[in-house]
């Protein structure tokens, strides 16, 4: 038996952060994920990271544009922004993480900031 999925009103409120990785050479997505976790552990610590509830929406990452979506709790958006801005290296590549916007649903994240017209 698995626990039942919580009703929407009892789930913690979340936000989706749309980011763009600016770099000279292409970045490996796995290395970006590792960099976020390492930075989050360093800057927010174990307690802060658990409160931030960072979750990667893996299938939304676009290799060509280097844009993607990251999910976090609604009251930790500023903390996650800071964690992303403190990333300066992914693997061996120097980079800047630019945040394109913060939304409440994946659908609006894709249509507003990732130029996805299929959802319209």
């Amino acid at each position: 038996m698995e626990p039942k999925i919580l009703p929407p009103s009892m789930r913690p409120a979340k936000r989706y952060i749309v980011f763009e990785i600016i770099s000279d050479t292409p970045v490996i997505y796995g290395e970006f994920v590792n960099a976020v976790w390492t930075n989050s552990m360093e800057f927010l610590g174990e307690l802060g990271s658990s409160e931030a509830g960072i979750w990667f929406v893996h299938n939304s990452y676009s290799e060509t544009k280097q844009t993607g979506i990251l999910k976090c709790r609604h009251n930790s958006v500023e903390n996650v922004r800071t964690v992303l801005s403190l990333i300066s290296m992914i693997g061996e590549t120097r980079c800047i993480i630019k945040i394109l916007g913060v939304t409440g649903t994946i659908k609006s994240a894709k249509t507003k900031y990732m130029g996805d017209v299929s959802e319209l």
């Binding site: 922004r81 992303l84 300066s88 800047i96």
Partner: peptide
């Protein structure tokens, strides 16, 4: 590479 956008600062 040391620059960040205004909102991040």
């Amino acid at each position: 590479w040391g620059m960040r956008s205004g909102r991040e600062l």
